[in-house]
Computed example of a mutant assay.
Amino acid sequence: MPVTDVATDTENLTMTVTADFAAPIERVWNAYSDPRQLERFWGPPGWPATFTAWDHTIGGRANYSMSGPRGEKSSGYWEFLAIEEPRRFEVLDGFTDEEGNPNEQFPAMRMEFTFAPTSDGTHMVTTSHFASLEALEQVVEMGMVEGTKMAMAQLDAVLQDLREYAEGKGTRVEMLDDTHVRITRLVNGPRELVWRAHHEPELIRQWMLGPDGWEMTECVATTTVGESYRNSWAPVGDTEGQPFGFEGEVLLSDAPRRAVTTERMQGQPVETLNDLNLYEEDGATLVTVLIEYPDKDTRDMILATGMADGMEASFERLEREVLAAARS
């Protein structure tokens, strides 16, 4: 994780974030000066950002919005006060309403980003200046410290070539906190096809089977918000185990980029929130699933079932049987 320290200073009304990146200063600068790259990490997991306007000049303005997993919206803006490539830039950061007008109910802050080369990469310091102690306390109470740490933890994937970052590393599980887990897997295929493989029954049946020895007995898929899906599996031949299945509802669908669903085992009340994101680069797609559990015990119980191993077996089958067939 690149963030090494987050410190609040109630006397000087600042919050300072210190981070180190294993990438040259020019590469880090590019990540902060290109809206398409910023979109991949500016919002914390579960709240991806979309920049709808970008005027990267002194006095210029950038508008962005962040979308929560249940359809929540939070919008903001940057007004560029200083740009000194590749060492420093400064913005006024504030909240906006849906029309892009500044929202005076929430505090704006001046943010200064500084970058310095090191022997291993780049050292970055971000200092947020607040107009009052109340404003500082308000953003801390809103979760800015935790959100900043989680957002910047996504930068490693942005700064590296996607294949260098994820190829050959299989299904990776990261515990972000007691109730959030991020699962990533690079799939060698275009995003459009990977999206279809997740949402079209005839393709789902070909790969979403987990370990060998299981068959899918039911597959009801949908991308319509408010509708329900349902998948069931049963052992085949001498495979041990009991039939089981999952079901849930679609909360958000943004093809072919993002889908958010609830998920619960059939017949059980425990429900998770699954946030699927697909990002394509150089013909490969990074599949990211952010799972929100109701509590730590549920998280640990589900992970202990071997879920990640089953997902890896399915992803291998996806590449071998679905994507390879599409290329032939």
Rank of each mutant, 00 (worst) to 15 (best):
H56D: 12
P294E: 12
T16L: 13
T298M: 10
Q105N: 15
Y279P: 03
A313N: 10
K73A: 13
F21D: 05
T126Y: 01
P35G: 05
I183K: 05
L136Q: 08
A326N: 11
T305R: 11
N274Q: 15
A22H: 15
K296P: 01
M111S: 14
E98D: 15
G46W: 01
G267S: 06
R70K: 15
L251Y: 13
M311Y: 11
G237M: 11
P235R: 08
D282F: 07
Q242F: 03
D212N: 14
G310M: 02
H56I: 02
A108C: 09
G245D: 06
V28N: 02
N103L: 10
P256I: 00
Y77T: 08
L251R: 12
R27H: 11
A31Y: 02
H123G: 09
G210Y: 07
D254G: 00
A284W: 00
A325Y: 02
Q266E: 11
T14Y: 04
T14V: 13
G310V: 04
G306E: 09
V194T: 07
H180K: 12
P2F: 02
T122E: 06
V236L: 01
N30F: 01
E263L: 07
V181L: 06
G189M: 00
E247H: 08
M152W: 10
R163Q: 10
G46T: 08
S74M: 15
V289D: 10
T148L: 13
F113W: 15
T4A: 12
R264K: 15
H129K: 06
Q242D: 15
A131R: 12
M216D: 02
G68M: 07
P201R: 02
E141F: 12
V125H: 01
G143W: 09
T4Y: 05
W207S: 03
A22W: 07
D178R: 08
T239A: 04
A62Q: 04
L303E: 09
S132C: 11
P24G: 10
